[in-house]
Amino acid sequence: MSQASEREGLSAETGRAILDLAAEVGGVAMLAGRLLRRLAPPRLDGPELARNLHRMGVKSLPIVGVTALFTGGIMVIQAGVLIRRFGAEGLLGWGAGFATLREVGPILIALMFSGRVGANNTAELGTMTVTEQIAALETLAIDPLSYLILPRCIAMVVMLFMLTVYGDVLALAGSALMGQALLGVSVATFFNGFLETIRVWDLATGLIKSVLYGVIIALSSCHFGLTVTGGAPGVGRAVNTSVVASATGIFVTDYFSTYLLG
């Protein structure tokens, strides 16, 4: 193959990839617009919302709890060397709290949530799409966005926010316990340092991020679930794409939100 045709092929592939990306981003934006229209006045199914809050939130408690506890512990192990070297035990609460509340807690919990809830949501919606269950809802004069999608999106945003609060608490507890066990820093010293240095804004920053991550996971998982084609293999591809897109969206949003929120 000549160099010219190789370059042409590369250009075509790049162009196609950009167009595909634009189509997916546009699809997510259109889904967001259609869902927003259904919020004023609210048109959503109450029992379906309650069902999703339970299965997406309550059932995520164990995995988020374990993740948060170990994350808190890891923060202390990483900081332990410096804390010991400089004898800065009093800063352990600040260091662990600052990083956990603003950054590590929200992002790790969001990634776990995306893997567990977002992937499951895409698989469910994808299966419903290829087996015409979504179409069946429409023929029963039921708006799938109001009945099926909006409750899932609201449940994901609300439950990720609440799981982040829960995870933050457990991560701090993990840090305090590990600080005592590994570094001999008492729990009281840990929380004294924490309360003296951490501002409410530090907590708020992480929680605002968790809402943004929740929106990204909700829209991404629903969009890829609703646009599945190609039967069962298509569902598998959609789950994969949804998880990758959510993770990418989370990191990009984290960068800009950290920059903007300070």
């Binding site: 015409e132 269950q133 069946a136």
Partner: peptide, 23 residues
């Protein structure tokens, strides 16, 4: 539009080729 179509669909029953039962 979708909302007006819902009113029409309320008068129609349909069986899909692959049944489309809600899992």
């Amino acid at each position: 539009d979708e909302l007006r179509l819902h009113r029409v669909r309320a008068r129609i029953g349909m069986l899909f080729q692959n049944n489309a039962l809600f899992d």
